[in-house]
Nucleic acid binder design. Structure first.
Lengths: 250, 250
DNA sequence: GACTGTGAACGGTTTCACAGCG
DNA sequence: CGCTGTGAAACCGTTCACAGTC
């Protein structure tokens, strides 16, 4: 099973510029980054942990603890410099280099994503849009032309795509995912409503509206408010260290 | 906090009705449900915790613990009956009643979601699609005609929408969200890349592609694979769509 | 004095190991 | 015996409270 949990020295003490950030922290860093951009746009150049936490929808204790894992980039008695902190977060998240994203699947969602100009955040360039439907191959969507997914490997190589977004039906998702992995991509964001298996060394994240709606249904049904602020908790680590494992037979 | 006294005695199962399920469990139940549907489609009618866990990307211990929170629906030495378990999960998640979803924002994403036939899972009907752009109000998308968001309250009342999906730019998200809440909706799924504030009693879930890509960037940057099995983590969820649940290759 | 950085307590989640039942 | 159901242990993440610094 878990072959990679060997960390040698006790990981209890979070090495300052050490390495591995906890998943929960990484995901919040992206929120802080967004909040900082917002502050910057408003001409604010210093924030307290309280103000930034409020804007990010977390507690100030959590925020300070998160930031302290990166190092000490604040000034006691004053706060954080927005631009400075933003820079550090960008570095920590790996946003200093450009990422070339290929969108596989040009259905409703794939096309919507391709047309989404800002594409979430700068630093991510959509370099390809692929599909298997002969009727739409060649069509222009936004700045792109739909490529034939049959040439997936060639397209990925030519565009040097290093990230893939899967906007596919569940039925073909695993097969396409395998090809994407074989093409050398190690970062995949899947919108397919299915569990996908990827080999170790590949990071897969899954985004799923059906799950979200069902979770909402659960809360609504019992008249319970889970999260009031933007951040409801929804953990789901799943360190499934078993790399092999018989695929799903049927 | 007010304590919820828990009858810790054994024997009597923890009332399936009165109990609040941990967030992590709820989110996994949706995954199990999907896996069960898949098994059912393949004609399988009994599964062991091991098999279901494998198909769901979790450990069998976790799966059994999760299911045991709902009651004892398995047979020792045998496993679970697929159809039976599916029924129980549906009930637990509140999927026995229909949910009427209004999509606010008919931009690229809103339209893609509206056209998404299967809409993730049955039980969710899209009853309205709204926007403020006069140029597209009245257009037909899928089975719907785009309504004028100026009449949001009236549209929500007429369609008796009890869930809302926000597919809006960040700049107007909070204002629209406030109106949606004022209109009586207590379950909201936001795709807007912004922190939203909602009053207690309203459940808000957020889905954000920018966050997902940045998390991928973090892992890619340090050559580290986080999770193999795709599963949303933390306070930052989803997005989704994909053509049909049928076999349509995209 | 104000606010950051952080050890320590706390609460939730996963894993383990085995008891209980077909 | 096989497999589910479950206390107990191990683990992880958040909150608290205060020490440290400007």
């Amino acid at each position: 099973m878990a072959g990679r949990s060997q960390s040698g020295s006790r990981g209890a003490a979070p090495a300052p510029d050490g390495k591995q950030l906890p998943p929960a922290v990484v995901s919040r860093l992206t929120v802080y980054l967004r909040a900082l951009n917002s502050f910057l746009a408003d001409g604010v150049d210093r924030v307290s942990s309280d103000a930034l936490a409020e804007a990010s929808g977390v507690s100030s204790a959590t925020l300070r603890k998160d930031l302290s894992q990166l190092g000490s980039y604040g000034t006691r008695g004053v706060g954080y410099e927005v631009e400075n902190l933003r820079q550090h977060l960008s570095v920590a998240l790996g946003l200093t280099r450009d990422w070339r994203v290929a969108i596989v699947g040009a259905g409703n969602l794939g096309r919507a994503l391709a047309r989404y100009g800002g594409f979430g955040t700068r630093g991510f360039d959509v370099v390809a849009l692929l599909d298997t439907d002969p009727q739409i191959i060649g069509n222009e969507i936004g700045w792109l032309r739909i490529s034939d997914a049959a040439n997936l490997e060639a397209v990925f190589q030519r565009t040097r795509a290093n990230m893939a977004v899967l906007a596919l039906p569940a039925s073909v998702a695993q097969a396409v995912c395998d090809r994407v992995v074989a093409a050398g991509v190690r970062s995949i964001l899947s919108f397919a409503p299915t569990i996908l298996q990827v080999p170790p060394g590949v990071t897969l994240r899954k985004v799923d509206m059906a799950t979200e709606l069902q979770i909402l249904a659960y809360h609504a049904q019992r008249g319970e408010a889970g999260g009031e602020t933007g951040a409801s908790s929804d953990p789901d680590p799943t360190y499934d260290a078993a790399p092999h494992s018989g695929g799903q037979p049927a």
